[in-house]
């Protein structure tokens, strides 16, 4: 039965929840509305307002025509860049994180705890601190200003999180299961493939959502290590908003922001159910 009585305490809770939700949603609403308003309309009235004429054309312009740093191809190439970085880096970091998490949770070997500690330490290093080391590494391996360089960075940086996630999930798998499989004659990778992996979809979905969202939205590495045509969309959006024109192009810029946010939004909508569930439950039974 749903409790529908409104006590003062309950009203207070609703009030708090709704104001928090509003605080989060208002910026999104403003961007959404501006994305279908013309630049002139925004300049002449206000940043906040209901569209007088629905300017759907903003989206076409943002996607394919708008000029970013002397190139007038919209944000399409940068979206492609982001996809070419996010998808491989998500897959690589998830696969290696799953294997590493499996190793440190279900096997005992000399230094296992130490290794796990060092890997997860990566979570607590501020991003700025890692910039210089990565600059040296990328320079030495010749991957400065390449998408491959960004894939390398995100794959390795992502390991801290993916290992932590998978380890905390796999730790709930009974050790006896591994013992039984070892007696049956299965080795490290066969046990992973035949026993652990089939139990993993919930945590792999969580890890993929997390990694994809973070890598797609990542900005600092993108803007530091790539320039011009190699930039991911987050970095390109900055260049776009700096574009000089007679009238500030807030409409087109908002449309570009909306397009750039779409992939992570879709991933969350498709897998969000698992995300919430996976974060709360260790659930292997």
């Amino acid at each position: 039965m749903r409790d529908t009585t409104f006590t003062p305490g309950r009203i207070l809770i609703y009030l708090a929840v709704w104001s928090l939700a509003a605080a989060w949603l208002v910026p999104l609403a403003v961007v959404m509305l501006n994305s279908v308003r013309t630049a002139e309309e925004i300049v002449q009235t206000s940043m906040i307002g209901w569209p007088e004429h629905w300017a759907w054309d903003n989206y076409r312009t943002a996607w394919a025509d708008f000029c970013v740093a002397q190139t007038c191809a919209g944000i399409r190439p940068y979206m492609l860049n982001s996809a070419l970085v996010s998808i491989p880096a998500t897959i690589i970091s998830t696969v290696f994180g799953a294997v590493a998490g499996y190793a440190v949770s279900l096997w005992r070997f000399p230094g296992d705890r130490w290794i796990y500690g060092v890997v997860t330490l990566g979570l607590f290093l501020p991003q700025q601190m890692r910039l210089l080391p990565w600059t040296i590494v990328l320079r030495d391996v010749g991957l400065i200003n390449t998408l491959t360089g960004l894939v390398l960075i995100h794959s390795i940086q992502g390991l801290s999180f993916t290992t932590l996630f998978c380890r905390n999930y796999y730790i709930a798998i009974p050790r006896e299961l591994i013992g039984a499989a070892r007696i049956d004659g299965a080795g490290f990778f066969r046990i992973f493939r035949r026993i652990v992996l089939p139990l993993s979809p919930p945590i792999l979905i969580v890890t993929v959502i997390w990694q994809f969202t973070h890598i797609w939205n990542e900005f600092l590495y993108g803007v530091t290590f790539t320039t011009g045509q190699q930039q991911p969309v987050t970095a390109a959006l900055i260049a776009l908003s700096a574009a000089v024109a007679d009238v500030p192009q807030h409409g087109v810029q908002s449309a570009a922001v909306m397009i750039a946010a779409l992939p992570t939004l879709l991933v969350y909508l498709l897998g969000g159910r698992y995300f919430v569930r996976g974060l709360t439950a260790g659930a292997v039974k």
Binding site: P174, A180, R182, I183, G185, R194, I195, P198, L199
Partner: peptide, 21 residues
């Protein structure tokens, strides 16, 4: 000698059946 080559079989308290098989 690793467990698989000891010529033994084991029954566990929790049964340890492979859940996905």
């Amino acid at each position: 000698v690793p467990p698989k080559d000891r010529d033994i079989a084991m029954v566990f308290q929790s049964y340890a059946l492979y859940p996905s098989m």
